[in-house]
């Protein structure tokens, strides 16, 4: 029985087989792979309020793609796309449909997807994945982020600013008006904790030596807070650093991972914010 999981990245959600690897190509670019070869690639662009990106954006994309691809009719199996999107399909021949340009009928987001039909079995799976694709949600609904082996829900006010997926350290940074949030995942935890303590890891992630650290009850978590004096606040502001920092790290021994969050702000950070993020950040059980 094939297992599925939901992937969420920067406003896009879709359900894909758990065995597929998800690669991040950019802020608005996802690549799904199986057995080290790409199966599905999605790029998207959210429309600015009040602007309809349909005609101009599609025109641009068509100009770029028509050198190698030509417009083909949407195959009947893929007609479900027409329900949610204005769809234009491209392929190398009439039979092989490989690229689709879609504009959401509701939120006007532009989506471009590319399919790889190397294996015949993958076509129904690809259809199932694209059927689950959604690009707009209600404004009150928290934003869903799920990749690799973790998932997180954040208030919609947090927007993605940066990310890095280096071996053993995953970091995603978000920004609100006054606060910067860094989400971190380190692994394998046993190897990390051989060389450093939880406190040392937390200090290096937070990037500040003045963090007042407190251990949790079971010694598997620790939290730190920096609230500098007014003089130090001014000095830090001169260096363009955010003076208030709240950081927390947890050791998930079941999954052999370390989960960390670091909040930086110009104003004091209430502990409830940190707690609410923790409640929605977890490792997904395989």
């Amino acid at each position: 029985m094939l297992k599925f999981r939901q992937v969420g990245w920067n406003g896009i959600r879709l359900t894909v087989p758990s065995a597929w690897e998800t690669h991040i190509g950019g802020h608005n670019h996802l690549i799904f792979e199986a057995d080290f070869s790409p199966l599905l690639e999605i790029r998207w662009k959210k429309s600015a309020k009040g602007k309809n990106p349909k005609s101009r954006s599609i025109e641009k994309q068509i100009k770029r793609t028509t050198t190698t691809l030509r417009e083909v009719n949407l195959p009947s199996e893929w007609s479900f796309l027409e329900e949610k999107y204005y769809t234009t399909c491209f392929g190398k021949s009439e039979l092989a449909f490989s690229t689709g340009i879609c504009v959401c009928r509701e939120c006007q987001s532009l989506l471009i997807f590319q399919l790889s039909h190397k294996e015949k079995n993958s076509a129904p799976l690809l259809r199932k994945c694209l059927q689950s694709l959604s690009c707009h949600h209600s404004t009150d609904e928290p934003e869903f982020w799920s990749l690799q082996d973790f998932q997180l829900t954040l208030p919609p006010a947090y927007s993605l600013i940066d990310y890095s997926f280096t071996p053993g350290l995953t970091r995603i940074s978000f920004r609100t008006r006054r606060t910067v949030l860094h989400i971190g995942k380190l692994g394998p935890a046993d190897a990390r904790l051989k060389g450093q303590t939880l406190e040392e890891i937390l200090r290096s992630l937070a990037g500040t030596p003045d963090l007042k650290v407190q251990f949790g009850e079971n010694k598997k978590s620790c939290a730190g807070y920096q609230a500098p004096t007014i003089g130090k606040q001014i000095a830090l502001r001169f260096k363009r650093d955010k003076p208030f920092v709240r950081a927390e790290i947890h050791h998930d021994s079941t999954n052999n991972r370390l989960l960390a969050i670091v909040l930086e702000s110009l104003r004091p950070i209430p502990p409830e914010i940190c707690q609410s993020i923790w409640n929605n950040y977890e490792i997904i059980q395989a």
Binding site: E21, F165, T166, P167
Partner: peptide, 12 residues
């Protein structure tokens, strides 16, 4: 053996 994800392992 390492406990890393496939993507991380490929990169390293």
């Amino acid at each position: 053996n390492s406990g890393l994800t496939l993507q991380e392992a490929e990169q390293s």
